[in-house]
């Protein structure tokens, strides 16, 4: 229930990423990257060698960490762990599916956008997207 879900008000939280190398590098360049004392990063680079298990673990870790407010996840990565992303329902951290460079963004796969689309009638915004 929404009323019971605690929304912590914090002054410094991180953005974490699960994405392909280029996207991660770009955001790191902007300065969202963080490495803590135990050499734990707040991002995971997904390449051809990354297993689904690793992605799952990273997703679970990022969504349970206290200091992370937003988890950005490339859409094609989110599709690999779709069941986890869809079953996640806490307000914080927020899950954000972002397009990646070599995978075109498909709004139909986005767990939030598909719900948005359901709520909108067909003639409004959603129809213009296809």
């Amino acid at each position: 229930m929404a009323g019971k879900a605690q929304i912590p008000t914090k002054n410094s939280a991180l953005i974490s990423m699960i994405a392909d190398e280029d996207t991660v590098v770009g955001f790191l360049l902007a300065g969202v990257g963080n490495v803590d004392l135990r050499r734990k990063t707040n991002y995971l680079i997904v390449d051809s060698k990354t297993t689904v298990k690793q992605i799952e673990d990273a997703f679970k870790e990022f969504t349970t960490r206290e200091d992370i407010a937003i988890v950005m996840i490339s859409q094609y990565v989110a599709n690999m762990i779709r069941f986890l992303v869809d079953s996640y329902n806490k307000p914080i951290p927020a899950i954000l599916e972002i397009p990646s460079k070599d995978h075109p963004y498909d709004p139909a796969h986005d767990s939030v956008l598909s719900r948005v689309k359901n709520l909108f009638s067909t003639e409004s915004v959603a129809s213009g997207r296809y």
Binding site: A2, I7, S12, A13, T41, I92
Partner: peptide, 22 residues
């Protein structure tokens, strides 16, 4: 060269009809 985050998030609440929105 990743050390500490330069860009961080501040989260606060907004109250709309008794519902707290982040």
């Amino acid at each position: 060269n990743v050390q500490t985050a330069a860009i961080k998030i501040r989260s606060r609440q907004e109250n709309i009809a008794g519902v707290k929105l982040p």
